[in-house]
Write a protein that binds this DNA or RNA. Structure first.
Lengths: 180, 180
DNA sequence: TGTCTCTGCGGCATTTTGTCGCACCCAAGT
DNA sequence: ACTTGGGTGCGACAAAATGCCGCAGAGACA
């Protein structure tokens, strides 16, 4: 990848978890990136505008605006930016959304530095092997919840109502996926 | 939108399950599409080249070449083609790949005709304006179980294994639906 | 300020699963 | 005939998930 690089590649790292930022920042610096980080879309945007990064690692679920808007902004700023979206709430729906907005790859936490670096280099080759396994019930449910949740503007109460399940139950399901 | 549509929109439907093709074909015809179908990438390709469709519904897991190949081919043929990828073996990795190759949306089975039409982001014929109440989790699960069960020749043990759920639990779910 | 709605969360009764174990059937090998 | 290897149905009991309260805090709005 870009063997003629003389300067150090710049990377923007956006996540609201301070510990995660520090760990990943250190790991990426060690791998030869010049890393800057932010804890929200709001603080990341001016930073990116002032100094457009070549690479970006963005968490989807953060306080304030969704990482998706940052994906879009970065992509508009420079379509060549390599963007990896990283989230604890991985779902097909958000993955599709992220890619459409210009993300290069979509990974679910936990992901280590090597996986992320690999994701940057991964271009759209159809080398994906099809899994011979049908979707598990749990995943099917998760995907469905994510879709409906999104349709209802992330309103948990409304989603629970329309899904005919109890709000408390939905809360617990969401909490569980995030924690693990 | 597009109230000046005079011609009927064409749709190509590719899936190796004959029953599924028939059901969906009928449903889409009823919704105002001119539907043609194929049971593999190999038969679909010449068909598409001879008569490029405006819309396409493509299953990923088929005998022969992967549906991804067809996605790419259709997109190259005409980038304006609206392509929905539909599969029972959904995964984030293949979803990302499909979108990169030019798919418009990626849905996992079971998905009904309305969801697919919605995915096209196009009110095919605006007279069929219906707001689909999201399916309940229970029904989604039930349909999925039925499909996988069928794929496994009604073998409960194997289905439970592949669905990553306990045989006893599957038995109980089946028993309950049978009773009512 | 008062009213609404959404949210996160604790607690507890109720249901549903997970996990055993056992008996029975059937098809293949031996 | 007998053993071996699934598959099926079902009882029982512990473990986990869910339904169903209620309460306090955060925001939006008049």
């Amino acid at each position: 990848m870009t063997p003629s690089d003389n300067d150090i590649p710049t990377m923007l790292l956006v996540d609201d978890d301070a510990t995660f930022r520090e760990v990943l920042s250190r790991a990426m610096t060690k791998r030869g990136f010049s890393v800057s980080s932010a804890d929200s879309v709001e603080t990341a945007l001016p930073q990116a505008r002032a100094n457009p990064p070549e690479f970006a690692v963005i968490d989807l679920k953060m306080n304030g605006a969704s990482g998706l808007v940052l994906v879009q902004a970065l992509h508009e700023l420079d379509p060549a930016t390599r963007i990896v979206v990283l989230t604890g709430y991985a779902s097909i729906a958000t993955a599709v959304e992220a890619i459409k907005l210009g993300a290069t790859q979509y990974l679910s936490k936990p992901a280590n530095a090597d996986e992320i670096v690999t994701a940057f280099g991964h271009s759209a080759r159809s080398d994906v092997q099809l899994e011979a396994q049908p979707v598990s019930i749990g995943r099917l449910e998760w995907e469905h919840i994510q879709r409906v949740l999104h349709e209802n503007g992330d309103n948990i109460t409304a989603t629970a109502r329309v899904l005919n399940m109890h709000r408390r139950t939905l809360q617990r399901k969401l909490a569980k996926r995030q924690a693990s």
